[in-house]
Design a protein around this nucleic acid. Structure first.
Length: 732
RNA sequence: GCCAACGUAGCUCAGCUGGUAGAGCAGCUGAUUCGUAAUCAGCAGGUCACGGGUUCGAAUCCCGUCGUUGGCUCCA
């Protein structure tokens, strides 16, 4: 498994959960995985005018809303300088330079001006101009403005500079507001059915920190009020389901300053989730013919040099642990150094008294200076220039000897925390003689990895620095590849069914043949073959997928798996990658039927992603109301009152469930039954067994399920049998 | 990493323009013996993230550090 640093300028929210994954020109990194290992960063390509015309209706509305926003800001602050105002995933923004610092308190006033502009229902008039005309308008401050102004439209002028010679330059005007803009827009300002400003942020012009910092005003817009309300309702629901909030309330995990940022600690309730997921993965993988392995959390530098991770992505790894090796001086050097010291001392004696020398030696001992250097300095002060020079020479030679000594010693050893498991697994493949009979070999491990994410990237469980990955590497022959890849996809679908994920998308990333040898390993035949195989598998299995050209990993095509939570938010949780390059770097081979050596293909796969991210997703998906099999507290027994027979009956039920491996607790507090129920509901305990005297007499329990209320009294044995069955089949 | 905002009891938050900290829930103790979302009372809980500074006096103002959150060109 591989990873990459999201380096360069745009390393930001693209990789965050809230933003849909998209082309990031080789910087496409999912929140869990940085799988674009060895995918070289490249410049973002400029959008063509044709591409811009493909804006959806909603994007046009939002882009137009950005212009209306600018119009409104100018009405209030006429000297505002505008940069870019595109539609974005959930709305739009406009970057503005303005001495007044806009705060959410200003929103009402700005929105009022925007409403006026929408009510005026101005058309968006397009006109094309020559480069010179555009420059002139910019110089007069007319672009991104309501009228000509004393100061030029500096950002607009800069943007014009960036437009290629052959491209048409267009302007859009709504009312007084004239803007340099490639469009497209809606017909009239009145077509913006509903909008709202949401927040302010700062952003560098063109995202470059050397450029001035602008205020970025964010808003969203929709065709109509109903759609906008649905959006805000979804946001509120997301807030209620925020995994950080629920994680604290349900005591799933914590972060601790002393442990470090991005390093989650799992409380017992959260650990239940982890262990249930591992149980699921282990069962599923065992059935699919995987073998489990275990590897250490760190390794020597050399392995990551072999894998190719270190030369490119050291930044994304925790800095190395350095094992210093301080050995004795090399005998020859020791002798040479002693001679030099002697020489220096003899020379010094020519001009310095014994007492003075003693004092200097003592001083050097205290300060840790080289005595030769100190003596040289001392001689300097007493003008014994020639002798000083000679001694300085000796000091220099002494220094050179010390450096030589350093070079002769072994380099200090470096160990790195692993950022991925694949190199370790490759080592396991290579450790034993392999024959074609051993393939496919499927090595699975819930491996713990560490990645040094930038502090600004950390986000709850979604972006962490330590993670446990549902990892496995399948080593197979080309002939086996299709079946293996298909089996992996089948596994995904099975998991989706288990978790009630009904919306998903597989993004199939392929290579660009023109970039063979640069961005992609130069094996055109293998690319063609593996891509075709992956495509076949996807087509045949009827899996929902899209093909994304030019985004494959360096070593092979890949699939990123996007899923949508119950409230429709998108998460990128997992990946599959074909790797026909790295096994060769590790010299992995197997004996073929013809008794020749061949290098296996490798499939990296992690359907459940990492515990951190997957559980973060599940918390939102279930709003913390986990199905029985996952629920940290599956059952709570609540006796009505504390009479001894009732308590005994309750304890019997608890013991019986516990003996069957059910996570059951009891509430024998002196609270009234209503209070006991309230606290169990609040903790989202899945099943409550309320037990009163009526139940005791009939050998019943009163069943209450979280979120479903009272389901009435039922025979004890029936309820217990059904609980066990539901857990066993991981019923939703 | 950079910019910004935020950091008060376990949790959610109050604490005005500076006058040495407060509520609800949770916790503990006691009473209450109750049939499906909160019985009552009492007690205990804080170096106001940390470190400096200004001031007679700082949770409050200033600076720094740490942490959290939002943002950091899907371009005119």
């Amino acid at each position: 498994m591989s990873f990459a640093a999201c380096k360069g300028k745009s390393k930001s929210t693209k990789c965050k959960i809230k933003t849909a994954p998209r082309s990031c020109g080789g910087r496409f990194c999912t929140p869990t995985f940085h799988f674009c290992f060895l995918t070289m960063p490249e410049e973002t390509e400029r959008k063509t005018l044709d591409q811009r015309q493909q804006m959806t209706e909603l994007e046009r509305i939002r882009h137009s809303a950005a212009h209306v926003l600018a119009t409104a800001i100018l009405r209030i602050w006429p000297d505002a300088q505008f940069a870019a105002g595109p539609p974005v995933e959930n709305g739009f923004y406009y970057d503005v330079e303005l001495s007044h610092r806009i705060t959410p308190e200003d929103f009402a006033q700005i929105e009022a001006e925007m409403k006026k502009e929408i009510k005026a229902n101005h058309t968006f008039e397009r006109q094309t101009v020559t480069r010179n005309e555009a420059l002139e308008l910019g110089t007069k401050g007319r672009l991104g403005a309501l009228s000509e102004r004393a100061t030029p439209s500096k950002f607009k002028l800069d943007i014009i500079e960036g437009i290629p010679e052959h491209e048409t330059i267009s302007l859009f005007q709504n009312g007084d507001f004239l803007d340099l803009c490639a469009g497209p827009h809606v017909m009239r300002t009145g077509n913006i059915g509903a909008f709202k400003l949401t927040h302010v942020a700062s952003a560098y012009y063109k995202g470059d920190e050397r450029n001035p910092q602008l205020q970025r005003i964010y808003g969203t817009a929709f065709k109509n009020k109903t759609e906008m309300e649905a959006y805000f309702t979804m946001l509120e629901e997301a807030k209620k389901r925020d995994h950080r909030k629920l994680g604290r309330e349900l005591e799933l995990f914590i972060f601790d300053e002393d442990v470090g940022p991005g390093l989650p600690l799992w409380l017992p309730n959260g650990t239940v989730l982890i262990e249930e997921l591992e149980k699921l993965a282990k069962e599923t993988e065992f059935a699919a013919g995987y073998q489990r392995v275990r590897t250490p959390h760190l390794a020597r530098e050399n392995m990551y040099l072999t894998s190719g991770h270190l030369p490119y992505y050291a930044e994304s790894m925790f800095p190395p642990m350095i094992l210093r090796q301080e050995g004795p001086l090399h005998p020859l050097l020791d002798k040479q150094l002693k001679e030099l010291d002697h020489e220096a001392t003899e020379l010094a004696k020519l001009v310095l008294t014994k007492e003075k020398l003693g004092a200097i030696a003592e001083q050097a001992r205290i300060t840790g200076d080289n005595p030769s250097t100190v003596i040289a300095a001392e001689l300097e002060t007493i003008k014994a220039v020639d002798v000083a020079q000679m001694i300085r020479d000796i000091a220099m030679r002494r220094l050179a000897s010390s450096m030589l000594q350093g070079a002769l010693l072994d380099e200090p050893e470096h160990y790195y925390l692993k950022a991925m498991n694949c190199p370790h697994h490759h080592k396991l493949f290579g450790a034993v003689q392999r024959s074609y009979r051993d393939l496919p070999l499927r090595l699975a491990e819930y491996g713990t990895c560490y990645r040094y994410e930038q502090s600004g990237e950390l986000f709850g469980l979604m972006r962490v620095r330590s993670m446990q990955m549902n990892d496995a590497h399948i080593y197979c022959t080309e002939e086996q590849f299709e079946a293996e890849f298909n089996a992996v996809n089948e596994m995904y679908l099975k998991y989706f069914a288990t978790f009630g994920i009904d919306k998903y998308l597989m993004r199939f990333s392929t290579h660009d043949p023109s970039k063979l040898g640069q961005k992609f390993v130069d094996q055109p035949e293998l690319w063609k073959k593996t891509e075709e195989m992956v495509r076949n598998v996807l087509k045949k299995s009827g899996i929902n997928y899209v093909e994304v050209p030019n985004e494959a990993a360096f070593y092979g095509p890949k699939i990123d798996v996007q899923v949508w939570s119950a409230i429709g938010r998108e998460f990128t949780i997992a990946t599959n990658q074909v790797d026909f390059a790295v096994p060769a770097r590790f010299g992995l081979t197997y004996k073929t039927k013809e008794n020749t050596e061949a290098t296996p293909l490798c499939i990296h796969r992690a359907p459940l992603g990492t515990h951190e991210r997957f559980i973060g997703f599940l918390i939102e998906h279930y709003a913390g109301n986990f199905p029985l099999w996952l629920a940290p507290e599956q059952v709570r027994v609540l006796p009505i009152g504390d009479e001894e027979p009732l308590i005994n009956y309750s304890k019997e039920i608890v013991a019986e469930l516990r003996a069957q491996g059910v996570r059951v607790e009891s509430d024998f507090s002196s609270d009234h039954i209503k209070a006991k129920i309230a606290s169990a509901e609040q903790k989202k305990v899945h099943t409550m067994l309320v037990i009163g005297n009526r139940d005791l007499e009939a050998n019943n329990v009163s069943l209450r399920v979280h979120g479903k209320g009272n389901l009435g009294a039922k025979p004890r044995n029936e309820v217990i049998a059904d609980l066990l069955q539901a857990i066993k089949e991981r019923r939703a």
